[in-house]
Amino acid sequence: MLAVLKRPSSIVLALLVLLVPAGAVALASAGGPPEVAAEIAAQENTNTEANLDFLFAIYMITWAGFFAYIFVVSRRQRTMEREIKDLRQLLTEQMPSGQPGTGKG
């Protein structure tokens, strides 16, 4: 019934993929509420939009790091669950009928 949520990583992944462009768009659109930005920029002699590429890199790297980790962990979880299932099956198959000697030994 929770079929959609069976893979939490895919949901997080999807959401985060959305975030990166969202951040980029926000940045590209002059960052911050326009009126505030204009006001502050007017008072300042520094270029507030300098170093946008650094800011972009910071957010990109962070999200990429989180992502990669979540992805790796969830993949490990899935392979292990499969292995656990297989081993369980093996054990239940073997126990009663497979090897008659098991029970005694």
């Binding site: 940045l27 960052g31 911050g32 509420p33 520094t46 507030t48 939009e49």
Partner: peptide
Amino acid sequence: FEWAPTERNLGE
């Protein structure tokens, strides 16, 4: 990216 104001000295 939208709500918080831009810092004066450091910028974006």
